[in-house]
Computed example of a mutant assay.
Amino acid sequence: MKNIVTFFLVITFQFGFATEIDSLDLNPFLKLPQFSNSLLEDCDACGCSASGGSMGFASMLNTNFIGIRYFNQSYKSTDGLYSNSPWYNENFNTLQLWARIPVVKRVQISALIPYHFHNRETNSGTQNISGLGDITVLGMYQLYQTHKDSTLFIHSLQAGAGLKIPVGKFDATNNGSVNPSYQVGTGSWDYLLAAEYVIRRQKLGLNTLLNYVIKTENDKYYQFGNQFNYAGTFFYLLKRDAYSIVPQLGFAGELYESNYQLGQKVRNTSGDIFLGKIGFEVGKDKLSLGANVMLPIAQNLTGGNVEANYRWSLNFNYSL
């Protein structure tokens, strides 16, 4: 995994510091670099309190917007007690109100308000849970951006911090299950640190992201492990009459530290996953529609007792 991150960083900075003059004819939606649909999942390994499901905090097309998004995450799990222990399907569904709004010059605020409805198979039948999830607020400050007429490459660097508010219900009875992330909320106040670097040359661009989530103990004395995320997304701007289309191709990775209960480490709760992703966004006037699919390339979740199948999302936004 370290080799993958190193390769990603080397490619990013080699591409970033070339010296030609930019001729990009920007779409009105693309006046500022955006978060790709790729990162900042504050879900704990699967669907509990998922705000982004590694699908991102903002749109490639909309600089500032309000919208609605649906995303689905499919997993399977087993208790692993025997070599022939059965595997059960788990589905994490989220309907989310999301927005990105300018506050002052160089500062933007993103907000996510999710509603979760999850289901999973058990040896006694299907289990369903639903409810309002944890609300996430993230502020980003633009540290640097090149001028369009001064270089062939446009660079942008942003950094920021955020907060996850424990609105969603945390059910302590799920702690002992194979997948303790089967929740609609963590019950804890969590803190986010994020950085984004974007480079564009003409119609081709690369969006790279790093994110770290610091998680705290909830009032049930349970603490989900801290989480590190990284991602890279190549995108290309196509114009067809009044429409703008942005196909996207990239990857995302997530690393989870161990959970703690009553101050003691919970075994088989750490892990990592590396995913490939493909998607697109299409926009006309102030409206845009986006779709995204992510498939696992390599993974090791909860000691191999949980496996990700796929993730996908749809979103519909109105530009402010």
Rank of each mutant, 00 (worst) to 15 (best):
Y256K: 01
L275Q: 11
D42P: 13
S23R: 15
F170W: 06
F316D: 04
C46P: 05
E217L: 09
A18R: 08
A172C: 06
P180C: 03
H155W: 05
Q158R: 11
Y191D: 06
L289Q: 04
A99R: 09
S83M: 04
P33C: 01
I154K: 10
F274H: 14
Q127Y: 05
G80S: 00
T173L: 03
P247A: 07
G185H: 02
N174F: 12
F35P: 05
A159H: 09
N3P: 02
Q227I: 09
V306N: 02
W312K: 05
K203G: 07
L249F: 06
D79E: 04
N84P: 06
G176S: 04
S51W: 09
K277H: 13
P166G: 00
G133D: 02
Q14R: 14
N119A: 14
N300G: 07
K284A: 12
S74R: 11
N211Y: 12
R200C: 10
K105V: 14
I109D: 03
K31G: 06
G53R: 03
V104I: 15
L206Y: 03
S188A: 11
F13T: 05
I101W: 06
L24I: 15
Q299F: 03
L163R: 07
T63V: 12
D190T: 05
A291D: 05
Q142E: 12
Y318M: 00
T126Y: 15
G16L: 07
R267Y: 06
E254F: 13
E217T: 09
T146Y: 00
Q73M: 12
S288H: 01
T146H: 02
N128H: 13
I297C: 06
V184Q: 00
Y318L: 08
Y212A: 03
G253T: 11
N91K: 10
S156R: 09
